[in-house]
Amino acid sequence: MFRSLGPLLLTLAAATPALAGPLQVTSRVLAQVPQRAADGTMTVAMRPAARAVPGDRVVFELTFRNTGTQPLAGVVFDNPVPAGVAYRAPAPGSAAPEVSVDGRRFATIDALRVGDRPARADDVTHVRWRLARPLAAGAQGRLAFLAVLK
């Protein structure tokens, strides 16, 4: 019995990524990169970056794809806001996340309070997206939020 259970448990342990196999998720961070045009004017582009400075606007981006053959239902993306980062808003082109100021209760920012005052973007500690519909086989998407480095 134990002899057969051992390999079974092992299979289950290894199965977390395997089960998740049909879902691919890639996280990126894009930061402001100033660019000087030939005429000397400066523009700011959002580019994947490994370094940035306080005050810079950054975009945390998740791209996902169901690479399996079955639809996935009840898909939820949880993104705790890292220390040193202040949440600002949904990124352009992304669904708006639900946000939380304590990691437990999620809602739109106007529906949240901190003590006896309305919550502000600076208070947000977690963002979460719940896909309303099952993610069909082959379907993909992008979710992202804007933030400022503290």
């Binding site: 898909v75 993306f77 993104n79 099952p134 993610l135």
Partner: peptide, 11 residues
Amino acid sequence: IVNIARLTASS
């Protein structure tokens, strides 16, 4: 600053 998102699906 490290960012990791966690993904769950029910079915």
